[in-house]
Design a protein around this nucleic acid. Structure first.
Lengths: 203, 203, 203, 203
DNA sequence: GATGAATGAGCCTTCATTCAT
DNA sequence: GATGAATGAAGGCTCATTCAT
């Protein structure tokens, strides 16, 4: 279905303002927590009124839900790209961890929301998110399994392994500072190395 | 200062009820988030009225603050014990990680609150907590440094190393399930191993 | 009915503590207003617990009521003394004003309560107080009338005259400061003079 | 800054409703005392919901504060008008007293609040009010001093004189009844006379 | 379409008062 | 007799959401 140029323009504006609102909301939610942020706060941070926000979103929850969906999408996309290359497990895992860590650092705010505000979703939304999380983990666990079978990865329950690996990366949303002494890239590399080889030196 | 037997009894009862309330609150806060939990909810979960809660605590924030203080104390105590033994770095780090992971798993709820609800504290409280976090990390970084100097730990910025190690452990509060296939001890051991030696096998 | 020595002692203590509480309450009520003062505040200011206050009084209102009664009694007593002397109107009025002004200044706190917190009384109490106020005023109006008939007081509606005279005195509870440059006696004398002769000098 | 016609209309309506609310609140505060009046009471007395009141005011205190500011403004304006005429002291004082008395009677409710609820203001507000009170008194004291120097006013500490004069007038808020036998004008005149010449007739 | 006004449910907190030992 | 514990009724205030123009 084609849209008239005018309708198209309007749709564009809608999308633009929505993005703006979602971004502003994400910033605030990450700082203070979903419940502590008012629709008014979100509007004010963009010099809009409450009503404007309600014009573009039906509810506060809807904004949160968009954040959840967008973050998932970006994570999912990253991993699909890597999978598509059919790399050997060691190489794949290295890239997955690196990319995951970078994603966490680049979108710290979104990640914080993702991990903290799940309880603010309704049951259906929560189920959906849980499912996607499982999919994401499953893809990585597959790689881990392949690595074990190829004899290159340490034998251990893959769920524990992957949760551990991702855990270190996810935690970056807590301690990574943009202004810090190391760039995100550097930190990501350190993580990859630490996870791959451990903190012990091999005699 | 000595208390009369009567006053002592009273204090004991007070402390008991306070513990009860803090525990109930922690459970609810962890499940639903601080803001989403009502003082009424906390009371009801113990078959108390809201007023009883207010008889033992001056504010909702005070309950949260007690949770923060108690959790810090338990973490701090663990590490002090280990430090007191003056073990070589490799041994010490292994124990620290193991104990930290176990702490996280054993008190998942408290840990969740610790990491999620910091923004609900007031400025002074936040400062205090930040200071304690730094102390805790510093003690572990000291061990890491000693390990690097002894040539047994991988050379890397100690702050990144320790944040990474603890990150994997901290993340356990997200995914560890008491009912899972593996015990907390087993999981802790896997983490220690993974962190120490990496997921790669050494040809 | 005679009381045993023991019961007498007890009654004395009761009366003593009650006085203490009423005095403490009056001070607080005057400072912050009846509603803004807690039973706990009253107790605490004497290092008592709330329960102690309730042991000596049945309700907060009862304390307030005692204040009202006591203050009335002291005003009433003063005027009775003066009336008993059967002085000529000019002399009597001069004494009444002087004594009234002194009463206001000496018990500023009580007076403040008397004039501010009447709405906190219940209907019956309010009626009783209104009646007493009328009695008090009536006695002074009588003097004023006698003065007019004797040709020594300015002819004007006696109610207005007396309300005006007392008004100036009552207002002292607002501006009189114990630490001020003038003693209560001096101020009372100035008032008497001002009221008797006016602020204009007679050419 | 110019407002669009629309914004202007809005502002007008806002101001109108605010006035309405302040007036209703003043009436209730005067009757029952600030603390005894609920935001709900204020709303209900205008057939508004509590929420409407909160839409137009941020807090109960803000309403009280507006009352304080408005009453001060009206008193201040009156005296400025009189001062502007540069009358001789006797004439000026007569007008000041008369106008002050009338002000008190015409806005009894506001005056009652002004004198009773000062303790409900916060520190800063209280300071501001105290400062204004001092300014007001100072202007009248100036007149009194001029009168003394001109030899037409009784020699006495001006602060005591003015506090006394105003005291009689202020007290009107306690006893003046609109329905009474005398009009406000009449009463004001009686006060002026009484204060100027005293209650004694001059032989 | 855009937004100012209104709403109602709910939450934290306070406090006079009662109760039980 | 004295008091610690408990209670319930408010009250101020917030806020997501709806409504009406």
């Amino acid at each position: 279905m084609k849209l008239s140029p005018r309708a198209e323009l309007k749709a564009k504006k809608q999308a633009y303002v929505q993005d703006e609102i979602v971004a502003a909301a994400a910033k605030l939610f990450a700082e203070r927590g979903y419940r502590a942020v008012t629709i008014d706060d979100i509007g004010s941070s963009l010099d809009y009124t409450k009503s404007v926000v309600y014009y573009y979103f039906n509810s506060k929850n809807e904004i949160l839900w968009q954040i959840f969906q967008r973050i998932y999408d970006s994570y999912f996309e990253s991993i699909q790209e890597i999978r598509a290359r059919n790399l050997p497990p060691a190489e794949a895992m290295r890239m997955i961890i690196r990319k995951h860590a970078l994603n966490v650092m680049e979108r710290r705010e979104w990640t914080a929301i993702y991990f903290r505000e799940e309880s603010e979703l309704n049951d259906q939304q929560r189920r959906e998110i849980a499912k996607k999380k499982r999919q994401y983990d499953a893809m990585i666990e597959e790689v881990y399994e392949a690595g074990m079978e190829a004899g290159v990865f340490r034998r251990m329950p893959k769920h524990i392994a992957v949760s551990g690996l991702l855990g270190m990366c996810n935690w970056l949303y807590v301690w990574y500072k943009e202004q810090g002494a190391f760039s995100a890239e550097e930190i990501a590399d350190y993580c990859v190395n630490l996870l791959a080889n451990g903190y012990l030196t091999k005699g």
